[in-house]
């Protein structure tokens, strides 16, 4: 359980990181929190030739609000994001989901950007990026580009980031807070363990309590976090009754692709995905109505 040999360089700026990535070739990797990368290296599932440590890059940390977006720099620790008052008030869905990410010790090191690029199919942070249509910003020596979350997550543990690109920030849209609520539900074997399936929802209701806008996505039951577009379409405009939500969420078999493993078989995972999706939408509705805290 010891990593193979590699070279190590600590950089002080994004430009230095991009240059090191460009010079380092395909087996060079950025390391920030290392909470997934280091176990993979210990098990020799990953064998980078060069690690580029960005923990000292101060321009890669911080949370700001710009217009109707909350911007989280890629190197911001999960623990700092969870503790952030602006995240709690502007992006409560992310704050709620973060409490399910790992444990105190791993959240103190793990970063928002690291979780996004790792793209674990059962990870919560990619799920929230997918739910809210976050924009991912990547930089390389070739310049900067933005990638919609829907185009970023490719498959299990794979993104459309190029080998020479460094993730710089994620921009999460902030919805108008009036009559808006979120819901997050997860089923896992143990508290803070990997999700068998999880769901995140956000909805805005009109003055009559009908659904004006709904975003719902699930993870754990597909190779990448999955927006349930047909559920959104079926429920938008409706009164979001429990029965309607349940019926819409029962109808996702064509979209999901759950896998069996030692913890749960595919059929169970698929059932859990439907249940957590319905619960998340129900909670989002109740929070939008102000009856659920």
């Amino acid at each position: 359980m010891k990593a193979a040999n590699f070279d190590y360089v600590r950089v002080a700026s994004i430009n230095e990181a991009c240059q090191a990535l460009a010079d380092g070739g395909e087996d060079a990797r950025i390391i920030a929190g290392g909470q997934t990368m280091i176990p993979l290296m210990a098990m020799r599932l990953a064998r980078p030739s060069l690690l580029i440590d960005i923990n000292d890059v101060s321009e890669l940390a911080g949370i700001t609000v710009a217009g109707d977006h909350l911007i989280i720099r890629a190197g911001t620790r999960q623990a700092d994001t969870l503790a952030s008052e602006v995240v709690k008030s502007q992006l409560p869905l992310l704050a709620d989901a973060l409490s399910h990410v790992g444990h105190t010790q791993t959240r103190n090191r793990g970063t928002i950007g690291g979780s996004l690029v790792n793209a674990d199919p059962s990870a919560e942070i990619p799920l929230i990026a997918q739910t809210l249509d976050a924009t991912i910003v990547a930089q390389s020596t070739r310049g900067q580009r933005t990638i919609a979350a829907g185009d970023f997550f490719d498959s299990a543990m794979a993104t459309t980031l190029a080998p020479d690109e460094c993730l710089v920030e994620a921009r999460f849209p902030i919805w108008p807070s009036e009559n808006t609520g979120f819901g997050f539900h997860e089923v896992s074997i143990r508290n803070s363990d990997y999700a068998l399936a999880a769901a995140a929802a956000q909805t805005t209701l009109d003055e009559n309590g009908n659904c004006l806008r709904l975003s719902i996505a699930i993870c754990g039951a597909s190779p990448a976090p999955l927006r349930l577009i047909n559920v959104e379409q079926a429920l938008t405009g409706s009164e979001l009754s429990d029965n309607m939500i349940k019926a819409a969420c029962a109808n996702i078999d064509d979209l999901i692709d759950p896998q069996s493993d030692v913890h749960a078989d595919a059929a169970y995972r698929g059932r859990v995905a439907k249940v957590v999706a319905a619960r998340a939408i129900g909670d989002a509705r109740d929070r939008a109505k102000g009856i659920l805290v």
């Binding site: 990593a3 190590y8 600590r10 390391i31 290392g34 909470q35 280091i38 176990p39 210990a42 690690l51 440590d53 923990n55 623990a79 105190t104 010790q105 791993t106 103190n108 090191r109």
Partner: peptide, 12 residues
């Protein structure tokens, strides 16, 4: 802050 010392290379 508490961290896991197996999830960090000493050089970091």
């Amino acid at each position: 802050k508490p961290v896991r010392s197996c999830l960090m290379f000493a050089v970091m």
